[in-house]
């Protein structure tokens, strides 16, 4: 079975999520299944033409085989010693645990240093998440952060790229964090499109 459709609630969550995220200057892509997602990833890397990519490990991300895509795009790909490589990388890739519809945000347990290094230091951050993890509200996300005996040491909610309006109140994108935030939402992230796979 390919491309199981999302239920209508998840679909409307996604719609709002995408609209809000774009309003916050994030770029949002959507893929129906893993192979479409791999294809999307390849396209994104082709367009970005990064020289160095740093990635934080993750189950979902592994299924996209980002290392292969990086190789195809001719980029060096690092998943270790990120404190060393992330400052020079052109792109950081990581996976998110959930999205927030009302604010267009993405969130993750960022306890591992790697997950923060790849999403703070490079100028572009590519985040992948499962479409069906999008929750309606910020409050839902805060509740989720606390599930299972309290929040993990570091939980991060990201909304659009880094920004400032500190000089003459003129909005400028990209200060200390990424200039660009690219979100890739995957509807069915199971191997072979098999819900049990």
């Amino acid at each position: 079975m390919a491309n199981t459709a999302l239920d209508s609630k998840a679909e409307s969550n996604y719609r709002l999520f995408a609209r809000m995220a774009e309003a916050m200057a994030a770029e949002v892509h959507r893929a129906g299944n893993l192979s479409a997602a791999r294809e999307k990833l390849r396209e994104i890397l082709q367009a970005l033409a990064p020289r160095k990519i740093v990635a934080a490990p993750g189950v979902l991300l592994a299924r996209l085989a980002p290392g292969e895509a990086a190789q195809e795009a001719g980029a060096a790909f690092y998943t270790e010693k990120l404190r060393r490589y992330a400052p020079e990388a052109d792109l950081g890739v990581s996976e998110m645990e959930l999205g927030i519809a009302e604010t267009g945000s993405i969130a993750q347990n960022a306890t591992d240093a790697a997950s923060r290094l790849v999403s703070t230091l490079p100028p572009v951050h590519l985040a992948v998440l499962r479409t069906d993890t999008i929750v309606p509200t910020l409050r839902d996300a805060i509740t989720r952060a606390g599930e299972g005996g309290g929040p993990p040491p570091y939980w991060t909610i990201i909304t659009g790229p880094s920004r400032t309006a500190d000089i003459e109140r003129v909005l400028t994108i990209g200060v200390h964090g990424p200039y660009r935030l690219i979100i890739l939402a995957i509807d069915n992230a199971d191997e072979n499109g098999n819900p049990n796979g």
């Binding site: 916050m24 993990p152 939980w155 909304t159 964090g177």
Partner: peptide, 11 residues
């Protein structure tokens, strides 16, 4: 609606 970053630090 929300700032770019909101972090929860617990330990």
């Amino acid at each position: 609606h929300l700032t770019s970053y909101l972090s929860l630090i617990t330990g």
